[in-house]
């Protein structure tokens, strides 16, 4: 790509980010749901189920990192729906008939998704502090935890964008992204994998969400880190790479019929 090409591509991306963020801000329903549901889930687990679950620590401290991942799951699944809505509207034909790089459209959606997720995650963290979450981590630990969560959110947003691209409707995007909402329940988010039946434990221990949660837990509440940091980073980077390639190639295929 020539120098001018790069400048044009960046300018396209900025215009598309501007658009997606504006649309996200105005899509009050989506914003509300991706915020309200995690808050309700957190209240449910802390106040209702939490008393019956033994994790060896104060349950609220145990569960908050899991709730954060759950929040990103909700955020990402709404991204899949937003992208699907766009792909199935007349707008995508206009965008495609413009001389812009195809990357720009998805970049716009992903950046808006990350911004929305970051906002809801921040609000969930504030709410959790009000519910009694008492992290012990210092500034560096917090920065590391936020960095990892951001990386995870970016990767998940690209994956969601890819799902949105292949979905034939908003409804099917919501169905396709169901696993993003479901996977946290099969992780160490709410209960320790040790308490699960033997056939489920390996699934729980070796899926991407568990090491991310364990890393955040270790950074914020001081549980042992073991190998989790490295495994979490590997999962996130791998997922990011895979998702970017998947989403852009699906976009090209979908838009070249």
């Amino acid at each position: 790509m020539s120098h001018q090409g790069v400048v044009a591509a960046c300018s396209d991306a900025v215009t598309m980010i501007d658009r997606s963020v504006r649309l996200a801000r105005r899509n009050v329903d989506t914003l509300f749901v991706s915020l309200l549901l995690p808050l309700l889930m957190m209240a449910l687990f802390v106040y209702v189920f939490g008393g019956a679950i033994n994790t060896g620590t104060e349950y609220v401290n145990y569960v908050v990192p899991g709730i954060l991942l759950l929040t990103t799951g909700y955020g990402a699944s709404s991204t899949a729906m937003v992208v699907a809505d766009d792909m199935n509207s007349g707008m995508i034909d206009r965008l495609r008939s413009l001389p812009i790089h195809s990357f720009a459209v998805l970049t716009g959606h992903v950046v808006a998704s990350v911004a929305r997720n970051a906002t809801s995650t921040a609000i969930v963290i504030l709410a959790s502090l009000a519910m009694g979450f008492r992290p012990e981590g210092g500034v560096v630990d917090w920065l590391a935890a936020i960095g990892l969560l951001l990386l995870y959110v970016v990767a998940l947003s690209w994956l969601a964008a890819g799902l949105g691209v292949i979905a034939k409707s908003v409804e099917s995007a919501s169905t396709l992204s169901f696993f993003m909402l479901f996977l946290p329940y099969l992780s160490s988010a709410f209960v320790q994998p040790e308490s699960m039946p033997s056939w489920l434990r390996p699934i729980s221990e070796h899926q991407p969400i568990t090491p991310v949660i364990e890393t955040v837990r270790s950074l914020l509440i001081g549980t042992p880190m073991e190998n989790n940091g490295r495994i979490a980073l590997a999962w996130c980077c791998g997922l990011l790479l895979f998702s970017v390639v998947l989403a852009t190639s699906l976009y090209r295929r979908r838009t070249n019929r």
């Binding site: 707008m91 034909d93 206009r94």
Partner: peptide, 17 residues
């Protein structure tokens, strides 16, 4: 794409802009 424009059957506009 630099020299054409397309107006499709369904108005290609962003409802929320």
């Amino acid at each position: 794409r630099g020299v054409i424009s397309l107006t499709g059957q369904f108005a290609a506009v962003d409802e929320n802009q």
